[in-house]
Amino acid sequence: MTQKNFACRISRSEPGPGDGGRTGSWRVLRPVIDLEKCIPAKRNKPACFTCWLYCPDGCITRTIPPTIDYEYCKGCEICAEECPVGAITMVEETVFIKEEK
């Protein structure tokens, strides 16, 4: 056989970060957490974490304060939609490109 193992013949993935590639580059809108409004950050207690629960890609940490992994966050906006206190706003990526420049 030309291929050494089955892995070369099909597309397969194992659980773990980044198997779909660095999907953060797909993002058009970036979720930004306002720590003044965020419940666990404001109260310094492990509460709420609705964003962590809803994030379909597991990009948000269950920490105080919660953090977002922009390497993989696709910017789907679910966290911003679900946050009960409206602490997450979606900011256009172009803003950050300008800042980086």
Partner: peptide, 21 residues
């Protein structure tokens, strides 16, 4: 593991950093 997952037009690194076809 997932079998026959979506492929992108280009190759990609897998979780171990090896090149996946």
């Amino acid at each position: 593991c997932n079998l026959n997952t979506v492929t992108l037009p280009d190759i990609r690194p897998d979780v171990r950093g090896d090149t996946a076809p």
